[in-house]
Amino acid sequence: MGMPPTPYTPDPRRSQAWIPFNTRSEQPIVTGTSVLALTYKDGIMLAGDNLASYGSLACSAPRLSVTIPSYTIFGASGNMSDFQYLQHDLDNLIIQEEVTAQDGHQLGPKQIHKYLSQVFYARRSKMDSLWKSVLGGGFKDGKRFLLFVDLLSVTYTVLTLATCYGVYIAQPLLRKAFEGSEVRKIKEDWLHVLFYRDPRSTNQYQITTISAAGPTISPSLKLETEWSFAESIRGYGPQTQ
């Protein structure tokens, strides 16, 4: 926050010095905001909006993905190019494992989590981090699994997860509500709140789930929003009384 991400253009003030490639990821450029993740009785559900921001310039891009053979779903916030790079990398990994190896072993969500943490750790140790946080969910052998990895390769698993603004706005309430049956409703409620409060979010979103039945990913959905209450809010913005 605070500093808008700037595109990596030659800076005349710094043109004297040669800038090494491995300082390029010192800031994110095209960014995605909050992703929410929730463990429910059948599996894992992820939700995120479809917005990629270039500073204050908005464009649409999916931020959730599914890797079918590995029983894993993902969402990412942070640098979108790093997310797309990671999708590629995982595709290659899975092709390697499924097609080349053909040893009857399949990578499950736990293996993918470990793999991601190693990739992220290697990059942060080169001072060239993948400038983002990844949430993922998996379901294999009757077990559900929710994972988190961030740019420093700090990893953990919990029952509910959120990134960016979601950490402060959605996560505390996700924790309270996670065992309820209406998980999709809960998700949509918190996407609403985030859309109202996060200036870098949009009302178009996707939801992806994974359960014993396999992964699903929704088409782009739209939140029905209601702004009339804004009239009655006092104490912010230009109105005086």
Partner: peptide, 10 residues
């Protein structure tokens, strides 16, 4: 110049 900090305290 602002630098990337490769450490956190957990």
């Amino acid at each position: 110049q602002r630098h990337f900090n490769p450490y956190a305290e957990n």
